[in-house]
């Protein structure tokens, strides 16, 4: 019972420190820029769901804003403590390391979901009725992708002392590179499954055609399989991160 109380306290502490961090400022700045882009888009273009997905949702949100928002908080929890040297205080407590990891994960995931889903809603509103209509349908894919990204980036934080830089490199280069590769290699990218789920969710709006021009290159899988992969990735990455954190020496 005392461990549960301590873990809750650690979760709240981590969340509070993440909120009042430079990561939040960065997130806010990026969201403001994306919102401005959405407003500009809604003024210039003839807004259709297809165009919103192809010109705003996928390139700005899924490929950029979503992974950045996720890595900001996911790496801040453990990597922040490592960089500041305060991890020693947590590791000196009688809390089992997997529970410390869980507390950090819970804090990062909660904030990330608030940010990514809230940000998505804001962008939809900024893009006008069409945007709002699309955004209402893609919350589930965004939620799943956020969970997978948080698991991945927090795992990075257990492995690398400069986890934020490594995660940025992954999100901006490796993920884009893998996601653009022909064949099944792209199935290693979280964004690939997010795109499949987005196309599936917005199919009734005729958005599927906004997908990659060459379906033979895109090689989509079933939405149910994509959901399953993201769920397994989320759980698997969380367990892997917890195990790594409990085994590694941090000095």
């Amino acid at each position: 019972m005392s461990s549960l109380y301590a873990i809750l306290h650690l979760t709240f502490l981590s969340a509070r420190r993440m909120i009042w961090s430079r990561q939040t400022v960065l997130n806010l700045l990026l969201l403001v820029l994306a919102t401005v882009a959405c407003i500009a888009w809604s003024l210039r273009e003839d807004p259709t769901p297809e165009r919103f997905v192809a010109q705003i949702l996928l390139p700005i949100y899924v490929a950029f804003l979503l992974p950045i928002s996720c890595l900001c908080y996911a790496t801040a929890g453990i990597a922040g403590d490592r960089e500041e040297g305060t991890l020693v205080y947590l590791l000196a407590t009688p809390l089992p390391r997997p529970l410390i990891y869980l507390a950090k994960y819970a804090a990062a995931l909660t904030l990330t979901l608030i940010w990514t889903l809230g940000g998505l809603r804001l962008l939809g509103q900024a893009a006008g009725p069409v945007g709002a209509q699309v955004v209402a349908l893609v919350s589930w894919p965004v939620l799943l992708a956020s969970c997978a990204y948080v698991g991945l980036f927090q795992w990075f934080a257990t492995l690398f002392s400069r986890a934020t830089i490594v995660a940025l490199g992954y999100a901006l280069f490796l993920e884009v590179l893998i996601g653009s590769m022909p064949g099944i290699v792209k199935r290693l990218a979280v964004s690939f499954y997010a795109q499949i789920l987005i196309f599936d969710a917005t199919g009734d709006l005729g958005v599927a055609s906004a997908g990659p021009h060459n379906p033979a290159m895109f090689l989509p899988i079933a939405a149910s399989a994509a959901t399953l992969v993201l769920l397994i990735a989320t759980v698997g990455l969380f367990l892997l991160g917890g195990w790594t954190f409990s085994q590694r020496e941090y000095v």
């Binding site: 005392s2 461990s3 109380y5 301590a6 306290h9 650690l10 502490l13 420190r17 009042w20 500041e84 040297g85 305060t86 020693v88 205080y89 947590l90 407590t93 009688p94 809390l95």
Partner: peptide, 25 residues
């Protein structure tokens, strides 16, 4: 030895935090 703290916290809040992480309520 490392001079690391949650710098924004007060000393009182910090000691209390560590107490709570040790299971004191």
């Amino acid at each position: 030895d490392a001079d690391a703290f949650y710098e924004e916290m007060s000393g009182r809040a910090f000691v209390r935090l560590i107490a709570r992480l040790h299971g004191l309520r």
